[in-house]
Design a protein around this nucleic acid. Structure first.
Lengths: 351, 351
DNA sequence: AGGTACCGTGGGAGCGCTCCCACAAGTGAT
DNA sequence: ATCACTTGTGGGAGCGCTCCCACGGTACCT
């Protein structure tokens, strides 16, 4: 009676204390059972579990987070203006993988958009407040300050697509090099000889790797690499058009084009059509991503598929283990954790 | 010295108490400033704000949630197996709108997948624990138990796409009726007379409304509605193929098709091609959603665009106001809060 | 002058947990 | 029988806030 009375603000939900009373044990014991500690006798554990079931007890996350100084939440940070990430199927597929994997755990997934400067500042505050146990970073640019901020704050993070060959953060990526190779090898196998490449934005490491794959595949097949056959694009349809136009001007004799994305392939296709080149009769065309566009293009577009959903799963796995065995930053920098998943060439009528 | 010593588990971040000490005021006063209470003198407020800035103070969310019994979080619940929602551009666009709007606030966005039974049970627990202040429900089926669970738990919720004309939950929708009408009116204006309709899944209210719009547009133009021109689809490409085949068998004289989705239109297009019907020379084709498929189809597909991003924004707005002015459920059932946004017909070469 | 009304402010109590110390009881070696 | 562990358990203290009561100070009435 000394206090202002039970505020009972929790909407009548049972607390640890009540479960303890019901089970005839102490608070600590219930906590131990809830958290799966082995230091509890079987009989006691059973009694507590019964009480939990009878009362329909659900732990209060906020109290837990406050007392234990962890949040049980991880953030997926989306650099929104990067439309590439929002492009189908990348975004939804990755989310599917992430969602599936995380729902196996007690963790909750926070979605944070870091597009505008305002949002970036908010995110920085957010991270400074340690409101998440870990961060999933997707499609980060080479010069993005976010990764550094994260390691400075010592927040575990996993990146999709390393920023460079020397990436220090754990990362999950698809085999862009192999994907590029397989596209070229497929075209060579189809008898093509003059194969052009429309690259993605070259400040994206994955796009560089695709170019590397393109080059090596040609070399390994005994072809010389003509730099005039490589034209930079920017992942957009318009960029694809422009690149295709330039390529045709420089090497009108080309008989195949490997585009660094389906969207750019769509742009290239338009130009080829306008120029009266048949696909695949005159020019074979290959895209990258295996998006809806590829399936519905006319002719249907051969494309390199990335296991994006699986990448999402791996990212969560990596991040969780990163959170679990946090050890001194020193030893962690030594063991690089990089996962690379294989791509798959989906052959269709365009090649 | 009586205690186990300062645990200092918060990673050295400043607390309210420290800010108070620095500013030379009490804890309560700092709290008032942080929460924008008007009951603080200007001088005090300035002092506190200075201290906050100097110390780089960021409030601890968990402590706040625990003390105030609210979470400052809202959940976006995604019924994952509903591939329709995951279809481009629906998902990413809505997320863009939701993300943009929520980043204007202090709220955080949780993404929860409720596909499998396991996930559903987890969600129920989650909600029972009142771990979010409100819920955004997308693409809910007429028989989904979730909405009832939410109102039972008295958790504010907003639904995208009402389940029926008598929807009791606040909802945001696009004008499916008007969209259906505009498609048909466009075809009529183009001189088409025998207009077929491939519907979406009719257990989706929006799909029904599109049919209603189709019917009324024909009637209002003085045409009779031939039920043989209406064929149920299921939003899939294969469903579109099947429906188109049936329609051609029944009414080989049709000169236009309004498909309830772009994907179904893509299926219909294949069949029309196979049957040697020219698009739009013999048969005009219209889709719905204005997805990437529509833009890249050959010929480019006329389609009805929904302002999905805007819908996302409105959903957040509705939900926040719902959370803000929580009042007795009785009075809230009376005032239905339903927002309907206009669609836009995007004319392309297929019609 | 005394009363009444409000400010603005300080700080106690408590939110529901986890952490950890203390302690009883049991086990085995000496 | 004594000592040293180990195992299971209870409960105090504290996490960093919000809520709300209490209280001194003004301002305005009668």
């Amino acid at each position: 009676m000394a206090s202002h009375g039970a505020r009972s603000r929790s909407g009548g939900r049972p607390t640890l204390e009540e479960v303890a009373a019901r089970a005839g044990v102490g608070r600590g014991t219930v906590s131990r059972v809830i958290n799966g500690s082995p230091r509890v006798s079987d009989a006691t554990r059973a009694a507590v579990e019964a009480a939990v079931a009878e009362l329909g007890y659900v732990p209060n996350t906020a109290a837990r987070a406050l007392a234990a100084n962890r949040t049980n939440a991880i953030a997926l940070v989306v650099p929104e203006p990067e439309t590439r990430f929002f492009a189908e199927p990348y975004f939804s597929d990755m989310l599917k993988g992430v969602g599936a994997e995380i729902s196996e755990t007690e963790m909750q997934l926070l979605l944070i958009f870091a597009g505008s400067d305002r949002e970036r500042r908010r995110l920085a505050q957010y991270l400074a407040a340690h409101r998440v146990d870990g961060v999933l970073l997707v499609s980060v640019h080479a010069d993005d300050p976010l990764p550094d901020l994260l390691s400075q704050l010592e927040i575990p993070a996993v990146i999709s697509g390393p920023r460079s060959a020397g990436e220090t953060l754990p990362s999950v990526d698809s085999d862009n090099y192999g994907g590029g190779r397989s596209a070229v090898e497929h075209l060579l196998a189809g008898g093509r000889r003059t194969i052009a490449h429309i690259t993605g934005r070259l400040d994206v490491y994955g796009a560089q790797r695709r170019v590397d794959g393109y080059r090596d595949a040609l070399r390994d097949a005994g072809h010389e690499v003509d730099e005039r056959l490589i034209e930079p694009g920017d992942f957009t349809e318009e960029g694809g058009r422009r690149a295709m136009t330039n390529l045709l001007a420089r090497r009108p004799d080309l008989d195949a084009v490997f585009a660094g994305s389906d969207v750019m392939a769509a742009g290239a296709r338009q130009v080829l059509r306008e120029e009266g080149r048949g696909i695949p009769s005159d020019v074979a065309l290959i895209g990258y991503d295996d998006s809806a566009i590829a399936r519905h293009m006319d002719p249907p577009l051969t494309s390199v598929r990335q296991p994006i959903e699986e990448m999402g799963r791996h990212m969560i796995d990596l991040l969780l283990s990163e959170i679990a065995d946090r050890r001194p930053a020193v030893s962690r920098e030594l063991e690089r954790r990089q996962v690379v998943l294989a791509t798959e060439l989906v052959a269709r009528a365009s090649s």
